[in-house]
Amino acid sequence: MGTAISLDLADDLPTARLRELTGDVFAWLREVDARFSTYRADSEVCRFDRGEVPLSEASGDLRTVLERCADLWGATDGFFDAYATGRLDPSGYVKGWAAQVASDRLVAAGAPNHCLNAGGDVRVRGHSASGRPWRVGVRHPWDESSACLVLTGTDLAVATSGVYERGHHVLDPRRGVPAVGLRSVTVVGPDLGVADAYATAAVAMGAAGIGWLDRLPGHLHAVITDDARCLHSPRLPLLPD
């Protein structure tokens, strides 16, 4: 999926079962990569975008993602736009969605205590092996070796969208130019795919994204602006200093 992915299973299960669960998670993520990668000409999403796969013949996963991206376009007033670059690219939703599905499957399979980190989009459930709530670090946007915030909890979906690695690459879909104003946006909510899309949308809004996040029901956030201000929801589950 073009990023590093790690999985921490904290349940006291037989080694063979842990290996089986791990294999299932990474097999699913490889399947998602094969289907949705915009860098692979033979992926289903690229073939669909070229008109080679009609909607009636698309996989259930692709139809689900297209429907949810359409819903998110409406929920974000068009700032989450899978066609912002002029071609279909649902990556701003897919990575979080794939990790959320993997986490849900782990819970259903009897592994309710885990942490799945897909390139900074993190889904934690239950407790770590120490019995304590999980800790999720939010990368410092100017220092890749440190965290600017650390969140803690037992059921968190934490998605971060930032411009610190690829520059201002998120487009403002209304103007068709790279959005500026926000260096990093972290959204915390119940579903990682939705949180991922909301974080992307807020970056696309620029400075206006701060007010939009403040009004967003059911979600918390942390924002680092281009001029190094850190703003966050009062109830954000931060680890005490």
Rank of each mutant, 00 (worst) to 15 (best):
W97H: 14
E67S: 15
P217C: 01
L239R: 07
V180F: 08
G167F: 15
A202P: 08
D227I: 05
D33Q: 13
W28D: 11
P90F: 08
V25N: 09
L62H: 03
A108N: 08
L220C: 04
A70H: 07
T152C: 10
G153Y: 04
V45M: 08
P173C: 07
S43H: 04
W134M: 05
L62Y: 04
T160K: 07
A98Y: 06
V65T: 11
L13K: 00
V188W: 02
G86M: 07
H168S: 14
S233H: 05
P217L: 00
A157W: 11
D191Q: 14
P217K: 03
D196A: 00
S161K: 10
S145Y: 06
A118H: 01
A27K: 12
A159F: 10
V187N: 04
A98S: 14
R105W: 14
D172R: 09
L66R: 07
A199W: 04
A129E: 10
D121V: 04
G211Y: 02
L236F: 06
P112H: 07
G153P: 05
A10I: 03
R215F: 03
E44H: 10
A179M: 08
P234D: 13
G119K: 06
G60Y: 06
E52W: 05
A228Q: 14
V136H: 09
S128C: 10
G126S: 03
F48T: 00
G120C: 11
G153V: 02
H169F: 13
N117G: 09
C69H: 05
R105Q: 15
L55M: 03
A82S: 13
R68N: 13
R50F: 03
R87S: 12
T76M: 06
C46A: 01
A102H: 08
L66C: 09
P190C: 10
V53F: 02
L238N: 05
D155E: 10
R63E: 06
L116Q: 04
H114E: 03
R50M: 01
A108K: 13
A82F: 08
L156N: 11
V194W: 15
E165A: 08
A179G: 08
P54M: 04
C148H: 13
S161M: 07
P190T: 14
D61Y: 09
A204Y: 09
V194F: 06
L239K: 02
D172V: 12
D104G: 08
E31D: 14
P173R: 06
G110R: 07
A201T: 02
D191I: 05
P237L: 05
D8E: 10
V223P: 02
D121L: 03
F80Y: 15
A34M: 08
A98C: 07
